[in-house]
Design a protein around this nucleic acid. Structure first.
Lengths: 208, 208
DNA sequence: GGCCACGCTAAGCGCCCGCTCAGCTTCAGC
DNA sequence: GCTGAAGCTGAGCGGGCGCTTAGCGTGGCC
């Protein structure tokens, strides 16, 4: 459990790369609105209002409402790839790296649930080009996890019959955290991360 | 693997209880449209058009667009409860009943992906009253799965540290199938059901 | 001090939304 | 053959949508 930079600073952190300030405020407002109501149910007036601006100000920084979703989705997916890549290319055994990958990925989905919800569940609202770009990032996500599982099979740490199916299931389990996790619920993101790391090690038959 | 009535007749089956015929056609059209584009992005004109009717015809059978979603969601959740209850109250060991529950639940989410998508992912589009009613059905779903896991702990078949957390994870894994399953993909609903039953038995530490 | 580029707003355009309503057709009951 | 109920349509209302445009205030630069 090493890579845990994701929850510091609340839900609005992690957008430091977006400039200028007004564009970042609009983007954060859009993330919150999309997460609460969904992309199609969110109006540009709502986004601008949350950012303390008039509806027209949005169009100075973004060409369309869809460009906002595209930017959010790309930044979020790049973060997801980074989290998994850091864990996958770490130093420990396949067992340690898989546990690390799952727990940090889950912590990101639980702690940054607002962002993760938009990133994982609004993909279909993008147009074909933007969607294709995001799907390429998803294949990188899949490859990182599959790589760790294959490593564990090579070293004899794991016992898995269907590598691709198990990879899919592991990612699916982590991603769905963004759907059900409740900040006011009984579990912290860290607790869910630890529970899920244990469950996933059981799924791959890790010897312990 | 006993309860497998869900995929027969294609995606439009299972609405036999909805009458008259025109109301059922509108409901099926709504399921397809909501699954493809999401509730908010679907227009009443689109639903009526798919059912071969004028937009006004919709309002003879349903008071609002939301009532359509409510009806779909309730029927779908009742079906989900029924599937899990049949498996949970079957005759075999806890191990057999859990495998049966997971594989039939997964087959329903994969084979009836169109319906399952609407049922599982459009809950937030309902108003407070309808949403509360559906959440009660979800608690029944949770209770059935938790019950099997508790049975397996009592008999010593399973080894689980966090019963509620594991129940949540098992259901989450099954439900998310509706998000990623692709009818034209490499796996049949039966194959995914079998794979997931195996993974879940590993998660609960079932002795085999 | 004059100028202009920049960030923003007030107003509003054209469109399509959910939904309504007057009226048409069909058909069972007598 | 007449009547009333049921099922449906064509036309359209009020409103909110995404997005545009003309113009205003402000601060850096010479």
């Amino acid at each position: 459990m090493s890579t845990a930079e994701e929850t510091t600073g609340g839900e609005t952190s992690g957008w430091g790369e977006v400039t200028p300030d007004a564009a970042r405020r609009l983007l954060i407002a859009a993330v919150e609105a999309f997460a609460e109501r969904g992309y199609h149910a969110t109006t540009t007036r709502d986004i601008a209002g949350r950012a303390g601006m008039s509806p027209a100000a949005l169009y100075i920084h973004y060409k369309t409402k869809e460009e906002l979703l595209h930017r959010i989705s790309r930044i979020g997916h790049e973060k997801a790839v980074e989290i998994l890549r850091t864990a996958a290319r770490g130093e420990g055994s396949a067992t340690e790296r898989l546990a690390d990958a799952v727990s940090s990925f889950v912590r990101w989905h639980a702690g940054g649930r607002t962002t993760a919800r938009v990133v994982q569940y609004e993909l279909d609202s993008l147009g074909p080009d933007a969607r294709a770009e995001i799907l390429a990032l998803r294949r990188q996500v899949d490859a990182e996890v599959r790589g760790i599982i294959e490593d564990g099979l090579t070293t004899g740490e794991f016992d898995v019959l269907d590598v691709q199916g198990t990879t899919l299931a592991v990612l699916s389990l982590c991603i769905d955290v963004a759907r059900w996790f409740n900040v006011n619920g009984p579990r912290t993101p860290e607790e869910v991360g630890a529970l899920y790391a244990d469950l996933v090690l059981r799924m791959v038959g890790a010897k312990r």
